[in-house]
Simulated scan of single mutants.
Amino acid sequence: MTTNFEHAEEFFSFLTGKASAALGRRLQRNLKDEGVIITSEQWSLLYYLWIEEGRTQQELAMLTFRDKPSISRLINNLEKLKFVMRVNDKEDKRSNLIFLTKQGRQLRDRCMRGANRTIQEALEGVNYEQMLRAKDTLEHLYANLK
Rank of each mutant, 00 (worst) to 15 (best):
K82Y: 11
S40P: 00
C111N: 03
R86E: 04
A143H: 12
R26I: 01
L81G: 07
Q42K: 03
T56N: 02
S20H: 10
A134M: 14
N96Q: 14
Y128H: 10
H7K: 09
T118E: 08
I75H: 02
V87W: 14
N30S: 02
F12C: 06
N127Y: 08
R133Q: 14
F12L: 13
W50P: 00
E10I: 15
N127H: 10
L23W: 11
M131Q: 10
S72C: 08
N77E: 12
Y47I: 00
E34C: 02
N77W: 03
D92C: 02
T137A: 15
M1T: 04
N144L: 15
L132M: 13
T118Q: 02
R26S: 01
N4E: 09
R66W: 01
Y128P: 04
N144F: 13
K90T: 10
L27Y: 01
T137C: 13
Y128M: 06
R25Q: 06
L138W: 14
T3L: 12
A122I: 07
Y142C: 12
D109Q: 15
F99K: 03
L107T: 05
A61M: 04
S72P: 00
I119A: 08
V84G: 00
N76Y: 15
R66A: 02
S13K: 07
R86S: 05
R133K: 15
N76I: 08
L63M: 04
R29C: 02
L23V: 06
Q103V: 07
K32L: 14
E139T: 13
Q120Y: 05
R108W: 11
S72V: 05
R117Y: 04
L63Y: 04
Y128F: 10
K18V: 11
T101V: 03
K82R: 13
Y47H: 10
I75Y: 03
E124S: 11
L74K: 00
K80E: 15
I71V: 15
F11H: 07
Y47A: 06
L60K: 01
E6V: 07
N30L: 01
N96E: 09
E6N: 08
D33I: 08
E53P: 00
I37M: 03
R73A: 10
L23F: 14
C111K: 01
T3E: 08
D109A: 14
Q58N: 13
L78E: 06
T39G: 03
S40H: 11
K18A: 10
R133V: 14
A115I: 05
Q28L: 00
Q28H: 00
L107W: 12
V36R: 04
C111Y: 04
Q106P: 07
N127G: 05
K82G: 12
N88L: 15
A22P: 00
Q58P: 05
E79H: 08
Y47L: 07
Q57D: 01
R113W: 05
Q106N: 14
N88D: 15
E59D: 05
I37F: 05
I119N: 02
D136L: 14
F12K: 09
L46Q: 04
Q42M: 08
K80Y: 13
S40M: 08
D92P: 03
L74P: 00
R133T: 14
R94C: 01
F83V: 02
L100M: 08
Y142M: 12
K90S: 12
L141S: 06
G125A: 04
E121F: 09
